[in-house]
Nucleic acid binder design. Structure first.
Ligand code: MN
Ligand code: MN
Ligand code: ZN
Ligand code: ZN
Lengths: 144, 144
DNA sequence: AGTGTCAATGCAATTCATTATCATTTGTGG
DNA sequence: CCACAAATGATAATGAATTGCATTGACACT
């Protein structure tokens, strides 16, 4: 499998866009990240490595990375869009604790199959889906 | 089953809030609606019936109605929150055409059951979920 | 090295949905 | 009817995300 950076380069080349140090740095930064970062949080990490980079470039690059299928936007219902690397990763959905924010990655083949089936039954060509399960985790439930 | 207006009145009374003509009118307007309206769209309909009502009151009332479990917020990924009456309605999710915006209500017992199960396996008390299937409808696919 | 061409950048300003502020009005229990 | 907390409408403010713009950079051809 190709490295994400290679995939990004190929994507940029194909779109007649340029591979810049900013774009490389932003991708590298998000790849090194375990958590699901917001644009703002990512910007802080990026800035720590190169303080000359602007917030807008982070937004612009994230959009490119999403379009290139290298990262995926997430909606944890906390008011900001979060992102996670998706290239080479298996698709998954999320189970989120609405108290502490903890989130668990889930993947259920039964559900995934039914989603495809439902779309087909309705004459739709399914292109994507979002599924978020919200609840309260064990720790938060029994207190603190 | 109680009427939604009764339920709203009871909710307001219980919270020491007031039943005002604006609130009643806003609820009545959204109940008469087939579509999934945004706050802005609802505001237009409300204003047609009473032009003195302000936009902020619509936002405030929608929040109350959501909290009272009478309407439900939706995310069709078009930049605005949409709402639909949910009191007395069976829960359902949505399949949305990303081209024309058409949406179909879906309910799959298998999926719903698995969601509960997954949460339980992870020690979560499930409180809600969001599931949106995005695709392109038959008309938009062959149409044009 | 010089030049032409565009895309990319950082910054600041802007957009747009949603919230907050506040002076005034209104619903409701007593 | 009264008192008074809550609600309202107008308006300003917020905050994430986008955009305009002057400048910079990368690359190609000379
Ligand atoms: Mn994840
Ligand atoms: Mn619906
Ligand atoms: Zn928790
Ligand atoms: Zn369509």
């Amino acid at each position: 499998m190709k490295e994400p950076q290679e995939v990004f380069d190929a994507y940029l080349a194909e779109k007649n866009l340029k591979a810049t140090p900013q774009r490389r740095l932003i991708l590298d930064t998000i790849l090194k990240q375990k958590d699901h970062l917001s644009s703002e949080e990512l910007y802080a990490k990026v800035k720590a490595r190169d303080s000359s980079i602007g917030q807008a470039t982070v937004y612009r690059t994230l959009k490119l990375l999403v379009d290139a299928d290298i990262v995926e936007p997430l909606d944890f219902a906390d008011g900001v869009t979060r992102y996670e690397p998706s290239y080479g990763e298996e698709h998954h959905d999320h189970l989120i604790c609405t108290v502490c924010g903890k989130n668990i990655e889930i993947l259920d083949p039964t559900i995934e199959k039914r989603q495809e089936q439902i779309a087909k039954e309705q004459g739709f060509k399914l292109s994507s889906h979002k599924m978020y399960l919200y609840g309260i985790c064990n720790d938060c439930r029994k207190g603190k």
